[in-house]
Design a protein around this nucleic acid. Structure first.
Lengths: 124, 124
DNA sequence: TGAACTGTACTATTTCAATTAGTACAGTTA
DNA sequence: TAACTGTACTAATTGAAATAGTACAGTTCA
């Protein structure tokens, strides 16, 4: 399970969302896996249940999980979900490219930084 | 001159900082060029002078401009400044790479996105 | 010298999003 | 029925960002 950084300035809500996205991308969580209940996770993180619930709502809106009233929340297993995450990752990365370009970074420098820093696989 | 987006959620202060960094990276502003006075820019943007002053203080702390009491604020022309901007751009881009990796983007996909989206020059 | 600029410093107030707090309702399971 | 689950809603709190106002110090130029 991921951890929260209360000093980072990043909203708790977003950190929880990103935490589950990451766990799914890494394959730690797979389709059908049940998430902790809203109340259980809130208790574990010492955070308000409403904050967790908001995170779950965002995850569901993005098709990453699905929630069933009375049963719980589960990792969705359809391709759509994985694609949605990838597409949003691409959009965010493109924004980062534009920002770096604005600051004077060349394409070659960016590519070198990727080769030096990425722990991702060569192919997907 | 750049524009502000009051709806973006990005602090005004940061937008002003990034605006000048961008103008310098693009070569629109060069070493020795004088910036608008704190009060003039605040008036132009319909923003509080304190907000602009905070931006200038950040720019000066990063070596991008220098301020002289009673005279004004100027773009610094030493190499240190350009390097400082590049270094911070690199740090931000590395953070973006790690985030994208977390979300499941492969190195090849990232490199392709750069080739498709960057308007930066091949070399620096 | 003095008026009109410039940057800088400081405190108080306002504003707004994020979070917290509390309660309530509905569906599932045993 | 009891105990769990998600969901919905309003109100209060918190903290960062921005605003407001004032004051002081250095520069420029008539």
């Amino acid at each position: 399970m991921f951890q929260l950084d209360f000093k980072s300035g990043v909203p708790i809500c977003d950190q929880i969302v990103n935490g589950f996205i990451k766990l799914k991308a890494l394959g730690v969580l797979k389709g059908g896996d049940q998430l902790p209940s809203v109340r259980a996770l809130a208790s574990k993180f010492s955070v308000n249940p409403n904050t967790v619930q908001k995170s779950y709502a965002i995850l569901e809106a993005n098709g990453i999980i699905y929630s069933v009233k009375g049963k719980g929340s589960f990792i969705s297993d359809d391709e759509t979900s994985a694609n949605a995450v990838l597409e949003s990752a691409k959009r965010e990365f493109i924004a980062a490219i534009k920002h770096a370009t604005d600051l004077g970074l060349s394409t070659n420098e960016m590519i070198n930084l990727i080769k030096q820093n990425s722990t991702a696989k060569e192919d997907t």
